[in-house]
Simulated scan of single mutants.
Amino acid sequence: MTHHRIDTERPATTRRETLECMIWAGTGVLWTVASGVPVSLGLLGKAEAAEAVTKGFTFLQISDSHVGFDKAANPHALDTLTEAIAQIGALPAKPAFMIHTGDITHLSTAAQFDDAARVIGGARLDVHYVPGEHDVIDEGNGQAYSQRYGKGKQGAGWYSFDEGGVHFIALVNVVNLRAGGLGQLGPEQLKWLADDLRGRSASAPIVVFAHIPLWTVYADWGWGTEDSAQALALLRPFGSVTVLNGHIHQIMQKVEGNVTFHTARSTAFPQPVPGSAASPGPLTVPAGELRNFLGITNVAIRPGANDLAIIDSTLARS
């Protein structure tokens, strides 16, 4: 387990060690989150993981499949997505559904969306999507995505739903994104979020998912959302809030009070640790090691408690 500390209250380039992020490698790490405080239960074997995911209500997160990507970092992104879906099919307990936290495709073409739908459909799960910036770069400024996944959604595709006693909120922070700039939610979506949360019990667990992190991982690379503070102010009164994101192609976690932030690996290619390279572009690793950097996330919600168990697994797991 490698620990990196980033001070998100100061410019990321200062690297002041006041807030702790965590990057994991290996088979998987189980985190139990009680009242917003995560407790690591260590690396899991198959039997332990099976026991964890069969207790209560579970769902899956995949992210950044970049269907259509064919550069050196992974010339076969569709194949590794297929491997991820096969791994999901082999889980000991069927999850209730799956979320995809964006960058389904690499260039938002119809063929890439078709390929992604065909492969992801193999999981035989309901899938809740949010767009990544690579899903809204078509000539219609996101029409290709919205025609497939925007039905019944608000604005650029935000929405909410309830499942198993948990309130899920899907946010969109990739519209009008400037190259290298921070994500944006915008006033219309923030107003909708305030309306969505109004009147809800503060004890109800909430899971928020979006593409770009809602905390500033590394501003120099645009790894954050510039108006996230307004969204988090609306969420902080709730006793258990988990925020799931993609975009940075690696696992990082931060806790602020009762809000836990967790980012996911890609199923396509890794990206560098913040500040360790000249740019956040695709990171090429030896072909034999690639699957150590790709993976899926399984989240278990325990009945009668606000505890979440988060299991991150790589495609290279035995």
Score class of each variant (00 low, 15 high):
141 N>W: 01
9 E>W: 13
243 V>Y: 12
157 G>S: 08
83 E>G: 01
110 A>F: 09
157 G>M: 08
131 P>H: 04
130 V>M: 15
314 T>Q: 06
89 G>R: 10
312 D>R: 02
93 A>W: 11
47 A>R: 09
82 T>W: 08
315 L>D: 13
213 P>Q: 14
29 V>T: 15
95 P>A: 12
220 D>P: 08
98 M>G: 15
134 H>I: 06
18 T>A: 00
317 R>P: 02
76 H>L: 11
51 E>Q: 12
224 G>P: 08
98 M>Y: 14
64 D>L: 11
8 T>G: 01
206 I>H: 03
87 Q>R: 14
119 V>G: 06
134 H>P: 07
12 A>Y: 08
7 D>M: 15
138 D>T: 07
104 I>H: 14
106 H>G: 06
231 A>R: 04
260 T>R: 05
38 P>W: 05
173 N>E: 12
227 D>A: 09
212 I>H: 09
31 W>F: 02
79 D>C: 06
148 R>C: 04
308 L>D: 01
228 S>N: 08
222 G>A: 00
102 G>N: 12
12 A>G: 14
221 W>Q: 06
229 A>P: 00
244 L>K: 10
276 S>R: 07
154 Q>L: 11
210 A>Q: 02
220 D>G: 02
91 L>K: 15
4 H>T: 14
277 A>W: 01
207 V>Y: 01
176 N>H: 06
8 T>C: 04
83 E>T: 00
69 F>W: 12
124 R>Q: 10
134 H>D: 09
184 Q>K: 06
45 G>A: 14
167 H>P: 01
132 G>C: 05
212 I>Q: 04
165 G>V: 03
161 F>Q: 06
290 L>C: 00
293 F>A: 11
136 V>E: 08
155 G>C: 02
89 G>W: 00
38 P>K: 04
260 T>A: 03
306 N>F: 01
38 P>D: 04
17 E>C: 02
209 F>Y: 10
289 E>H: 13
267 T>M: 04
288 G>P: 09
270 P>G: 04
85 I>A: 05
8 T>P: 03
97 F>A: 05
138 D>E: 12
60 L>A: 13
201 S>G: 05
288 G>M: 03
50 A>F: 14
233 A>P: 00
196 D>W: 03
13 T>W: 03
247 H>M: 10
190 L>I: 03
22 M>E: 09
128 H>W: 11
99 I>D: 10
97 F>E: 15
103 D>F: 09
108 S>H: 10
150 G>E: 13
172 V>S: 03
8 T>I: 07
135 D>W: 10
211 H>T: 04
74 N>G: 09
43 L>Y: 14
72 A>E: 13
237 P>K: 05
106 H>Q: 13
164 G>F: 09
176 N>S: 14
